[in-house]
């Protein structure tokens, strides 16, 4: 027999200490992230919160900081979000359903899947460059709400596809088998079971993607959206039949993050206050959307237990 390994209490307590130190370090790391988030919120709120009033919400941008407001910005954000949702939600869910429920295991599927992973890593600004060339010039959509909505829609498409697939994947195969065994067709299984049972997950993805789109700035600057907009898009309601119009989709626009960027890049401190105020609103919207997503995910998880 060779040398015996001795039980060494000192060595043990050394390892215990290391373990303990690591736990403290990781809590510090976690704390660093959370405190930064908190500082950011406090900094923004302490500067900007006081600036938010009725006039700020209902005024157009102005050369005079105390008269400037975000009316055209928040209306623009709303219109762009609507267009983004319209473009991305059906396309994203359909693609997710195909990849999870239909796609055969072949090279075409492999390429599509690899592409979606890749697409999520492509810088957002290159989407703007593509949109500038295709939507603005080739298709002649101009610097419009439509261009912005489509651009952001394509940008968030991978988020919706991936969350749709994840939501479908949590449904156990026994449910699929039960439905197929009843003679249901593939589409019936999807329509009657898979989509209803994955609503929570899909909704979460949709909200997360909208929260991403609402704060996105760079691709919209690239399509040339940073202009002085002191008017609202065409109203969707008209006097004459059919009483609604989508004329607004062709109108120029500005959005909250662009307005904020505009103000923060000016040297005057008063504009920085405006920027902070716009930031408070933007951040509130984002946090609300994310909070809603977390809540929906949790409550659906509680509702359906497999």
């Amino acid at each position: 027999m060779g040398e015996r390994v001795v039980f060494d209490r000192k060595e043990l307590s050394r390892r215990q200490l290391k373990d303990y130190i690591f736990a403290i370090m990781s809590l510090l790391a976690l704390g660093f992230g959370l405190i930064t988030l908190l500082l950011l919120i406090i900094d923004l709120a302490s500067t900007g919160l006081g600036r938010i009033d009725y006039a700020f919400m209902t005024n157009f941008p102005s050369r005079m900081p105390e008269k400037a407001g975000i009316l055209s910005a928040w209306v623009g954000s709303l219109c762009v979000m609507f267009t983004t949702a319209l473009a991305a939600i059906p396309l994203g869910i359909a693609a997710g359903v195909y990849l999870e429920e239909y796609a055969p295991k072949n090279w075409i599927t492999a390429i599509i899947e690899l592409n979606i992973v890749n697409l999520a890593g492509i810088p957002s600004i290159t989407f703007g460059l593509m949109a500038l060339s295709i939507f603005v010039y080739k298709f002649g959509f101009g610097q419009s709400i439509l261009t912005a909505g489509l651009t952001l829609g394509l940008l968030v498409l991978p988020i919706i596809i991936v969350t749709t697939r994840e939501a479908l994947r949590t449904i156990p195969s026994t449910i699929r088998e039960a439905a197929f065994a009843m003679g249901a067709s593939r589409w019936q299984v999807i329509q009657h079971h898979l989509l209803p049972y994955s609503t929570g997950g899909i909704l979460t993805g949709v909200i997360i993607s909208l929260s991403r789109a609402i704060g996105e700035t760079a691709p919209l600057i690239t399509i040339g959206a940073l202009t002085f907009i002191a008017f609202l898009p065409t109203s969707p309601f008209t006097e004459e039949f059919p009483f609604v119009t989508i004329q607004w989709i062709k109108d120029p626009f500005t959005v909250l993050p662009i307005q904020m960027f505009n103000w923060v890049s000016r040297p005057q401190e008063e504009f920085h206050v405006n920027a902070a105020a716009a930031g408070v609103i933007l951040l509130t919207l984002t946090l609300l959307l994310n909070g809603a997503a977390i809540y929906i995910r949790a409550s659906f998880r509680r509702k359906i237990k497999w």
Partner: peptide, 25 residues
Amino acid sequence: GMVFQKPNPFPKSIYENVVYGLKVR
């Protein structure tokens, strides 16, 4: 028809479960 190892009712009402095969047709 088939009945599986683990009970696998759909997360729907009792009624919806029973008439599902008829609705599918």
